[in-house]
């Protein structure tokens, strides 16, 4: 049996007070089925994601697909510890040998997880990049955090990663604010890969890019996965992106996982009505 790199159990992120155990209707959080909404009719609680569980194995690509508002990004930001979930556990093999819940890590440990063990690519480049810092500097930030103190070494390492992600090296000392969206995404990917993380989170990496650039970025992600042997969780609302990249897929709706399995299976033989709708509308 292969040990999971990341084990997520019962990940829940809610906003507002819950009415659990009170009221006759039963709180949204207590319902087992898809409630058809993310907000509780009784208490007004918003459940961005509720009771999400999954495993990621070393070197695999896991896709998360769903409509907007289904909680995909909330899951990603929770995993990258951008915010703390309301409840749930996640065990990451690279952190304390997977014995401790990463959501209970203290702040220096959280910083270590974010700077050394994981990388993330956000949908909006401005969230992941500092646009007032050069492309090379954005990649260098993680190296500097890892106590690299030689400008020449940092530059050659940053140049290496930027070259791997096909960012022209003569643009290395330019500001990403002046780059095209596709190139900004490639700088983000280079930044996520510096420090050789064990897990890379891709949050809608190709959304908003035109089709030819999308293809280029998808090719790059596939190459990276092959070259770096890194596990990837990719979030997208686009089934074709998931179909290209992911071996296994979760389908999310209203903050819950409604279906999960091999990507081929989900695309060819969707079980849940929502997945069926998703597949038929994509075709």
């Amino acid at each position: 049996m292969v040990l999971a790199l990341l084990t997520v159990r019962g990940l829940t992120k809610t906003y507002g007070p819950a009415c659990r155990g009170r009221g006759s209707e039963g709180c949204l959080l207590d319902r087992e089925d898809d409630p058809g909404t993310s907000s509780c009719a009784a208490c007004g609680l918003i459940a961005a994601c509720s009771d999400v569980s999954f495993d990621v194995y070393p070197g695999e690509v896991l896709g998360i697909v769903g409509e907007s508002g289904s909680g995909k990004t909330t899951v990603m930001r929770s995993l990258y510890l951008d915010h703390m979930p309301t409840s749930g556990e996640a065990y990451f093999a690279a952190f304390e040998a997977g014995r401790h819940n990463i959501f209970e890590a203290d702040r220096p440990q959280r910083r270590r997880i974010r700077n050394y063990l994981m990388g993330i690519v956000y949908q909006e480049a401005r969230r992941g990049l500092n646009l007032l810092v050069t492309a090379g500097g954005n990649v260098a930030e993680r190296l500097l955090a890892a106590d690299w103190r030689s400008v020449a070494d940092i530059r050659s390492k940053a140049a290496d990663y930027l070259a791997r992600t096909e960012v022209p090296l003569d643009r290395m000392d330019d500001f990403p604010a002046f780059f095209s969206n596709g190139m900004q995404q490639r700088v983000q990917i280079a930044k996520a890969l510096s420090n050789s993380p064990n897990l890379v989170l891709l949050d809608e990496p190709t959304t908003g890019l035109d089709v030819s650039v999308q293809a280029g970025v998808l090719d790059l992600i596939r190459d990276i996965r092959r070259d770096f042997r890194v596990a990837i969780v990719v979030v997208s609302h686009d089934l074709s992106v998931i179909g290209m990249l992911a071996e296994r897929t979760l389908v999310m709706r209203h903050g819950r996982v409604v279906e999960s399995g091999l990507t081929d299976q989900i695309l060819e033989d969707p079980q849940h009505p929502y997945t069926q709708l998703l597949v038929s509308s994509a075709l």
Binding site: G137, E141, R142, L144, A145, V151
Partner: peptide, 22 residues
């Protein structure tokens, strides 16, 4: 203040790096 508390000075180093590069 949080950065001081955690001895997290990467951004300061980055500012110096940017200065050297540019």
């Amino acid at each position: 203040r949080t950065m001081h508390a955690e001895k997290d000075y990467a951004r300061m180093w980055l500012a110096l790096y940017e200065d050297v590069v540019r």
